[in-house]
Design a protein around this nucleic acid. Structure first.
Lengths: 124, 124
DNA sequence: TGATTAGGAAACCTTCAGGTTTCATAAATA
DNA sequence: TATTTATGAAACCTGAAGGTTTCCTAATCA
């Protein structure tokens, strides 16, 4: 329904410049030239980054007269959140284990860091 | 403190193969050959991906005899969560606006989708 | 000990991402 | 209308990402 993701979101946010762009556009809507003023590269380069963000649905272009204004379109980040949520339980486990370790000195399954007490194989 | 991030996490998870690797290793610890069996590429290629994940701190290698077992190290994903949390309010706003639109037909600021009723500039 | 197995290192190839410069076009303005 | 401004499109360059193959070393096992 919404603009299809020609570029996937993971790839879109992989580039630091594009993350800065999202930041910049998060609270204000800006035309390309104004945007590119914030970056140490050519306007065209910035424009290409904007294109990629747009393809990923993270940004929306609106033509106003001769300028094109871009603004954040945060919805696709929900996919990232879903992805991340899968792993949350894992790091919560880890944190719990760490807490346990710190409090009791007992290494329940794995030591959080440092030399490992070389476990025997548990998988065939 | 933990293994420094030679590769940043955004870049590490940008590759679909690496995301699959994280999935695969999330519940079990596996040696390289076993891992590479799940992928349509050479063991060496998989090994390089593992290296990148390891550099990002997302995976930990443990030598057991002649094999190297890898397992998930989810903590660095917290950085991603922090990053994401910045944008949550934005999409929550959007969702609220959408709800408002659906319920009342009133487009408060922006129409959530579809042909735009060409707004006047709101930024100087 | 000799052969086999696990896995990393090195060299190499190919594609593509991120830049640049140049050109074209539409809107605004003098 | 002539000129300037905003921006996208096209062609091109370069480095690095993702693969492959080949080789080397350390454990394991017969």
């Amino acid at each position: 329904m919404a603009a299809a993701a020609k570029h996937d979101i993971f790839q879109a946010i992989a580039d630091p410049t594009r993350r800065e762009l999202l930041r910049l556009l998060s609270d204000r809507e800006l035309p390309v030239t104004a945007i590119s003023g914030h970056f140490p590269m050519s306007r065209t380069a910035v424009s290409k980054h904007l294109r990629i963000l747009s393809d990923a649905g993270l940004v929306r272009a609106e033509k106003v007269g001769r300028e094109t204004r871009y603004c954040l379109q945060p919805e696709p980040l929900m996919e990232l959140k879903r992805w991340l949520s899968y792993y949350e339980r894992y790091w919560e486990n880890k944190l719990a284990a760490l807490k346990h370790y710190v409090e009791t000195g007992q290494t329940d399954a794995e030591t959080p860091a440092g030399p490992q007490p070389v476990e025997e194989p548990s998988e065939k």
